[in-house]
Design a protein around this nucleic acid. Structure first.
Length: 568
RNA sequence: CGGGGUAUAGCGCAGCCUGGUAGCGCAACUGCUUUGGGAGCAGUGGGUCGGGAGUUCGAAUCUCUCUACCCCGACCA
């Protein structure tokens, strides 16, 4: 490819509305352009990268035995009524209708469609197990799209769905997908971590996420410093930090805290550590309000809380009026003594003694509170976010934290969809049986952004070789005027092209500095600078984008040298 | 969805307060010079000032309204 026959439009200035580096660089390099909120056009240059990612995913999925297909992006509403997921997805569903006012959704995911396909196509255990996948455009009406294609509304996803006669068969395919996902991210060339995850609106029993490690990642992942354990903070088990409850040593006392509402203020005012306080949060329950209690210095984990049977879904905190009604005070003074609703305490809180809590009366707190003697609870659960320094839940090492970008998520769905949609097959005994199901998603467009988050420097993108839009850039100095340079550049271009190497020759009439800056921004891994100066010595200059170290290479051996570099 | 902000040339912005026929930088185009780190000079093209309504002799500017986009929040007890 020659630049004058391609489309390269770069910008020197960082776009104003781009916050994270991948978004900035994708705009500056001209990979994407914004059409509307959460909607992006992929330029020919960006699309080359996208296709590289797609093809790696396709190859590894095929290798793992999955079958590629294509489902419609637009789905009839009736399908979603069968599974009852319209509420789970809520506002994220883009509802559309046709001229006859029939209702549709633009597909955010395809469990319903594939299950409908399979219930009609698959009737016998002999056809199972089977694993289908597609690479397709999805739309999710995100509350707040941001960070360019990292969290856009329209995006490309690879989604796979497997069907089985047994749990064992499902686990087998799940493990295969687990392996395939690792292979894909390895081949793309990114550092990642696979972690335990909450299955959210997709549902099912077990799930794991694949996170590309990056400081800008939206997710916090917790992992053991010496062991194997790793989990999204949403899912990470937080164990009780107090092994056994100590005997009560203090007597119950009501103290003045006229303006102290937050844990910080109360702890300071009473000169106690925040870990000696508890906070009581009132949320909507299935039957009346529910109180959730965590230690003052801990964070309530809303995902864990929302998953509890007694807590309403979706998770919702009570508002000020409702709090007043239930606790008889403002939010800052809620306590557990004489609180007349279902009380669920975190496992650490259950073992606390002589603690501080609100007095359920504005302006007062209680000190020296002890369970059983002064107050009681109905249920003990893991309610809090795990913290850095907590013991790892598997008993090996302590927890550390990293930020991650979720690029993949795999689920063991079980029979949730097959039962809801009556996707059954006949087993060996001739009896009807609901299929076991797995599903496996991977964000294709997000992967490109994640790759840049992990591979860039102050000059621009540094593409991992596996997804670079071009492997080699030939940058001729004074291509227009120096015939010698032009011949050398054209010849090298032709030779590399004939070898099947993806090469771009910059034949624009631009000054050297402009050209070099452009290709540093674009991040082509191998760059060859051809100029009269070096040709005088029968040499050309080679630079690897990764470190920009420059090497003079004999003109006669440059082809072999490049072939070696690309192979390495 | 709640709060705040912005909307003027492809991009970034000024002009608006105090109404009078729209400007700067970058980018683009032409010519000359320059040619190993985002060149210089000269010239050129490009805008129904987000849409609609109103006030006025006259609206980018004042008023109303709609829309789009951005930011913050939706986690504190």
């Amino acid at each position: 490819m020659k630049t004058t026959q391609f489309h390269i439009v770069t910008r020197k200035e960082t776009p104003q509305d781009a916050e994270i580096i991948s978004h900035q660089l994708m705009i500056r390099a001209g990979l994407i352009r914004k059409l509307g909120a959460g909607l992006y056009t992929w330029s020919p240059l960006g699309f080359r990268v996208l296709q590289k990612v797609e093809n790696i995913i396709r190859e590894e999925m095929n290798k793992a035995g999955a079958l590629e297909m294509l489902m419609p992006a637009v789905q009839p509403k009736e399908l979603w009524q069968e599974t009852g997921r319209i509420d789970d997805f809520g506002g994220q569903l883009l509802a559309i209708h046709d001229r006859a006012e029939r209702d549709y959704f633009f597909g955010p995911t395809h469990e319903e469609v594939i299950t409908d396909f399979v219930r009609n196509e698959v009737n016998s255990y002999k056809q199972l197990p089977i694993n289908f996948y597609q690479i397709q455009t999805k739309f999710r009406d995100e509350i707040r799209p941001r960070f360019g294609v990292m969290r856009s509304r329209e995006f490309i996803m690879k989604d796979a769905y497997s069907f089985h006669m047994s749990k064992e068969s499902l686990v087998e395919t799940y493990e295969k997908m687990h392996q395939a996902y690792g292979n894909i991210i390895d081949r793309i060339g990114l550092e990642y971590r696979c972690v335990l995850a909450d299955s959210g609106a997709i549902g099912g029993s077990g799930s794991q996420e694949f996170h590309v490690i990056a400081d800008s990642g939206e997710d916090a992942i917790m992992y053991s410093d010496t062991g194997e354990y790793a989990a999204n903070i949403e899912k990470c088990t937080a164990i009780s930090l107090i092994a056994e409850r100590a005997e009560a040593a203090q007597s119950l006392e009501k103290v003045d805290t006229p303006t102290q509402k937050t844990i910080e203020e109360v702890a300071n005012h009473l000169s106690v550590d925040k870990s000696q306080t508890i906070k009581t949060l009132l949320v909507e329950g299935v039957e009346g309000p529910v109180a959730l209690v965590v230690r003052g210095d801990h964070q309530l984990n809303e995902i864990k809380a929302g998953n509890l049977a007694a807590v309403a879904s979706p998770f919702r905190m009570l508002n000020d009026d409702e709090i007043k009604q239930v606790a008889g005070c403002e939010a800052g003074f809620i306590g557990v003594k004489d609180l007349s609703c279902h009380i669920i305490v975190d496992s650490t809180v259950a073992n606390m003694s002589d603690f501080v809590c609100g007095a359920s009366e504005n302006g007062f707190h209680l000190t020296g509170v002890n369970w059983d003697r002064d107050a009681s609870y109905q249920q003990v659960e893991d309610l809090r976010d795990a913290q850095v320094g907590d013991p790892s839940p598997d008993g090996v090492g302590t927890l550390k934290m990293a930020r991650g970008i979720e690029v993949g998520h795999i689920f063991q769905l079980g029979s949730k969809y097959s039962e809801a949609m009556k996707a059954v097959v006949l087993n060996e005994q001739g009896k009807s049986q609901a299929m076991e199901m797995g599903c496996y998603g991977m964000g294709v467009t997000r992967m490109v952004a994640a790759a840049i988050e992990q591979n860039h420097d102050e000059k621009g993108i540094i593409w991992p070789a596996g997804i670079a839009p071009f492997q080699v850039a030939i940058l001729p100095m004074n291509y227009q005027k120096s015939e010698r340079v032009r011949l050398a550049a054209d010849e090298l271009y032709q030779t590399l092209s004939d070898m099947g190497i993806e090469v771009i020759l910059d034949d624009r009439k631009v000054r050297p500095g402009f050209m070099m800056s452009d290709f540093e921004l674009l991040g082509v891994p191998h760059q060859v600078i051809i100029g009269d100066r070096a040709l005088d010595r029968n040499e050309v200059e080679y630079r690897a984008r990764i470190d920009m170290a420059s090497k003079d290479i004999s003109h006669d051996t440059i082809v072999n040298f490049l072939a070696e570099q690309i192979k390495a």
